[in-house]
């Protein structure tokens, strides 16, 4: 397995959010996390990154336990994180955001070139303050910054949230293209059609645990799981 979360318990102070959350991600696959608002999808990704205290269970990346590491060591093991809401360094330029990504695992200009060739629009805006980018460009930069790690696993939290249709298509195509190059991805996605078109398997999250993990081949837009766990 590329990434394994085993019986994770985590939360914020006295509020427990994850209650025995378990899932596995196979090398090269796109695993989609789906669930209602507040189900704990973002918290699951934050637990992987060491941003919320994990009180029980384990996170293992490619054979290495990472939940015992300090938070800043986790990305260095090879996890690229695209947080919900993007969380760019808004007062830094596009080039500087990318530089931060490159520094994480000591990647050089070759990686920078490769990442920029995926997103030519960013190359035209290297000196622009990143908070002045359009929503779609900001999302490209958030993904580019994470790809600068040459991650073993890419965590994408609702990358198409709040974007217009053409941008959604572009981001989706990017995820598909990355998968073709062998990038393992955990994708949080709310929309059924998007999940079905890019994911290999879907893990349905409810009440801080994974209720079911189903290959997308066995699902259609009318499958009962979507009504039960996502409410659509």
């Amino acid at each position: 397995m590329m990434l394994t979360l085993q019986s994770i318990e985590a939360g914020y102070g006295a509020v427990q959010v994850l209650r025995g959350l378990t899932f596995e991600v196979r090398p090269g696959e796109v695993l989609c996390l789906m669930g209602r608002n507040g189900a704990g999808k973002t918290t699951a990704l934050r637990a992987i990154m060491g941003q919320v205290p994990v009180t029980a269970g384990s996170v293992v990346l490619d054979g290495t336990p990472v939940n015992t590491l300090p938070a800043h060591e986790v990305p260095k093991q090879g996890i690229g994180y695209v947080p919900q809401g993007r969380r760019l360094f808004g007062e830094l330029t596009v080039a500087e955001n990318i530089e931060i990504g490159l520094m994480t695992r000591g990647r050089d200009a070759r990686v920078r070139e490769r990442v920029l060739s995926i997103f030519p629009r960013l190359r035209e805006r290297l000196d622009q303050m990143s908070r002045t980018l359009s929503g779609g460009e900001q999302q490209m930069l958030a993904i580019a910054r994470a790809l600068c790690l040459e991650p073993k696993v890419l965590l994408l939290d609702e990358p198409t949230e709040g974007l217009q249709p053409s941008m959604i298509a572009l981001i989706r195509d990017t995820v598909v293209a990355l998968k073709a190059t062998g990038v393992t991805t955990v994708l949080v996605e709310q929309r059924v059609d998007a999940a079905l078109s890019v994911a290999d398997r879907i893990a349905f999250v409810t009440g801080g645990r994974v209720a079911e993990t189903v290959p997308t081949a066995g699902l259609t837009t009318t499958s009962p799981q979507f009504a039960t766990y996502v409410g659509v």
Binding site: M49, G50, Q51, A71, H72, E73, V74, P75, K76, Y81, P83, R87, F89, G90, E91, L92, I100, G101, M103, T104, R105, R145, L149
Partner: peptide, 10 residues
């Protein structure tokens, strides 16, 4: 700017 995200980038 953002210490949590800074940590997420090493």
């Amino acid at each position: 700017i953002d210490r949590a995200t800074a940590r997420a980038f090493g």
